[in-house]
Amino acid sequence: MDSQNLERINSMLDAEVEIREKIKEQVTEFDKRTRTLVGILNRIHSTRSEKMSTLLDQARPVLDSCRETTAALADIVPPDQFWKWKDMWSLSLRSAVFSATLMEYLNSGTLLSLPAVAETLGFKPEWKDRVTLAVEDYLHGVITLVNELSRLAVNSVTLGDFEQPIKISLFVKDIFAGFSMLNLKNDTLRRRYDSLKYDIKKIEEVVYDVSLRKLAPSAQEKAE
């Protein structure tokens, strides 16, 4: 190799190292915010339904602050290099997706769509070649939501909320039905989807026990 070519390659390598370090800084901040968010939301398991809105009010500013990270990443990542760098922030992003969908469920009992989550986290359409919410990251976040709701189904009964497990059961079964219609070729995603069956079984056992003891309307009555 001639010296000019070597110099060009070194410049490219140095540029990549600089980008990586800048992304790392933002991912570290992103991770701090999502850990704080998940920590706040973990208190849902010891919070009565009438106080849930207060808990969500505490979590919302932290979720909103994640927009700062997505904007910073969009400034750092060069055009058309999304897939090159996305794995660096995927785990933090999935936590943010989980938190956003959990908060929406607790607030309205509905599932936040992919575009709605992207908007909540501050992603802009013009960033799609640099930073965007990939479908697989959204789906991983939704699966984590189901995992968490299976815990909530058990803990809500402990807190005396006997209708929550029935609501969760209907919601989770609807999500599972949606997943069953997807052509999942990602091995990790497929394995996590298969694990949802255990969450559903756990929730169904809680619903069965609550219904058997006539502590709340049956899931069928609730659906009707």
Results as ranks from 00 to 15, higher is better:
M1Y: 11
M1K: 13
N5G: 12
L6W: 05
E7Q: 15
N10G: 12
M12I: 06
L13Q: 14
V17H: 15
Q26N: 15
Q26M: 13
K32L: 10
S49E: 07
S53T: 13
L55H: 10
Q58F: 03
P61C: 01
S65I: 09
P79D: 14
F82A: 12
W83K: 13
D87A: 12
A96P: 00
F98R: 11
F98G: 02
T101Y: 14
L102I: 07
N107E: 12
S108I: 11
L112H: 10
S113Y: 03
T120D: 04
K124R: 14
T132H: 06
T132G: 01
H140C: 05
G141C: 07
V142G: 03
V146M: 01
E148K: 07
S156G: 03
V157R: 02
T158W: 04
Q164T: 11
P165M: 01
K167T: 10
V172I: 05
V172T: 11
K173M: 11
I175M: 06
F176M: 07
A177D: 12
G178T: 04
F179L: 01
M181D: 06
D187C: 00
Y198T: 14
D199N: 12
D199T: 05
D199Q: 09
D209W: 08
S211V: 09
P217E: 04
Q220H: 11
A223G: 06
E224K: 12
